[in-house]
Design a protein around this nucleic acid. Structure first.
Lengths: 324, 324
DNA sequence: TTGTATGCGTTATCAT
DNA sequence: ATGATAACGCATACAA
């Protein structure tokens, strides 16, 4: 690969001059500018971003830590994030933590060594101190670590309320909520809270189940759902995340429960899949594109030393389809 | 952030010595080794990988270009790739090309500037020359660009044969194949070839449809499927990729076609979703984990200047579920 | 308008 | 066993 030196030599100038035309800084005569430009083209010169990063103390790379990009929700999230980041001149280093503490720690260390300019955390299994000691701009998804770290989330409480309410209004008398693992301290736990409040206020029977920590252990979730229906065969409403809802739909099919006649199901997220399957899933939509955009903005603002809003809660919307 | 200099100063030695303990190279006395180690711990020293990359002329980063990680197939692929790459000490820079020529070109240029050690291409919309001039280790998925660039794919021909055969055996008399855009020169076109051969040999009526270039334009695919069924309402078998198959299932539901009684559907890929939906999708399974592993291995071998196998075709397997 | 010298953080060569 | 120095490719302060 040609370096700035080669270009300088070919153009008969010094590296300084080449650097100048490269960065459009300072005065240069048209003549030399052209000479240099020509040499660049001739040599197919590309500035070495590693060298630039070293000098500028800035890599223009953002670390993205999520459970796994194989999970539709995070796949879509990652796609949006990559899009906005790239628009802003940042690249994404992808890290799949599988919500494994050790892996997450390793990734964080790795990202620090690689001098990423900031980290977007969609997985957060570490201790609060570990995040605070990071000494690097962070933005989290769906978790408020401290009031000094900005987060992006949907209005989980309102979403939980909407979901529970819909099921109740539609006549469900025994509603199950399958949540993620509540010990993870995610803001999505607020769905749980709202769900309980609504269901209690309306004196509707309810049961709650937590999934294990790993988000995409399909067989485990299947067992969980199976056991739930075994223990409570008369459940007539389920509220859970979209992907889990798909599994619930399958379980219902196996158990010959008709949807929505015998049982109604509402998801959360509105991933693309929700409207792709049969029956189309009623769900609470979170605006993933906007949230992703905001997350990237928040991170970049921090990188540039600007003040940012700490709480970034986005409105959700009920999307009624065919499972309720 | 502490640098090697800070450590040296604190330990009362020079940077050379610190570098030595860092890399376990050359002789050092236990005493100084300990002093240095202590200083490192004290300062929470982390070597700067950017500086290392510059010196070593090696970034330990791999570029991954795919259509979009929001598409389940590529999401799963990316997840596997990231996993194996990380195991080998490589990180993944994520690029979603959306099969857009201009974007892909931009990403390739960006990756070159960032001095990635190699590129994994799951999207390839450029001209052959552009890949050859890249001057960088490449491995492609599902496309044979030239015989000098190794590729990984499943046995698309066999998969097409298996799929067509199953539908024929199950009694389908008018089979549709919805393929990706054949102009992209992908190896998946071999499914098409095999499909045609089988269907012609068995004198079964068939029709073929190509999707547009963008892989995940849902409304467009919906229209395509809708039009297909409008023009040929008597189609009783469909062979296409898993994600499109999901859309076909939905269309069938809308059109009151019973699966598998009125129409049988077989997918290709066996993404996780295939066994999650109702009805569970019969499909041709490609071993994505193994393929991803191989792709990473091929790339790293090339990076290390070793010879590699050019054709890496993996066996497929018919997984019969409930749509046939 | 252009050139010289220095430094970004690291590793390797060559001394000592 | 340890240190001084150059080099990786680039960008800036300062000279000329």
């Amino acid at each position: 690969m040609a370096t700035i030196k080669d270009v300088a030599k070919m153009a008969g100038v010094t590296v300084t001059t080449v650097s100048r035309v490269l960065n459009n800084r300072g005065y240069i005569s048209e003549k030399t500018r052209n000479k240099v430009a020509e040499a660049m083209k001739e040599l197919q010169y590309q500035p070495n971003e590693i060298a630039r990063s070293l000098y500028r103390q800035k890599s223009n790379i953002i670390g993205l830590i999520i459970p796994t990009v194989a999970h539709s929700f995070f796949g879509e999230l990652a796609s949006h994030i990559e899009y906005y980041a790239y628009e802003c001149g940042y690249k994404i280093l992808l890290c799949n933590s599988h919500l494994n503490r050790k892996k997450e720690k390793e990734y964080v260390e790795m990202l620090k060594r690689h001098k990423v300019d900031g980290i977007l955390m969609g997985s957060h299994t570490l201790e609060i101190d570990e995040y605070l000691n990071l000494n690097l701009p962070i933005v989290t998804f769906d978790r408020q670590i401290t009031n000094s770290i900005p987060f992006v989330s949907s209005d989980n409480f309102e979403g939980g309320r909407l979901a529970a309410n819909l099921l109740i209004q539609k006549g469900c008398r025994k509603i199950a909520h399958i949540s993620g693992n509540l010990s993870l301290n995610m803001l999505s736990n607020k769905r749980y809270e709202a769900f309980i409040i609504e269901v209690v206020a309306n004196r509707v029977e309810h049961i709650t189940v937590q999934t294990e920590v790993d988000v995409f252990d399909i067989p485990q979730n299947e067992r969980l759902i199976y056991n739930m229906f075994k223990e409570y065969p008369d459940i007539d409403g389920v509220f859970t995340s979209d992907i889990t809802a798909v599994q619930v739909i399958q379980a219902c099919s196996r158990l010959n429960k008709r949807i929505p006649e015998d049982i109604k199901i509402i998801g959360y997220d509105d991933i693309q899949l929700a409207s792709l399957i049969v029956p189309q899933l009623t769900t609470i939509r979170q605006p993933m594109a906007e949230m992703s955009k905001r997350a990237v903005e928040l991170l970049i603002k921090q990188i540039n030393g600007k003040e940012v809003l700490m709480e970034n809660i986005f409105p959700v919307r009920l999307v009624e389809r065919n499972t309720t």
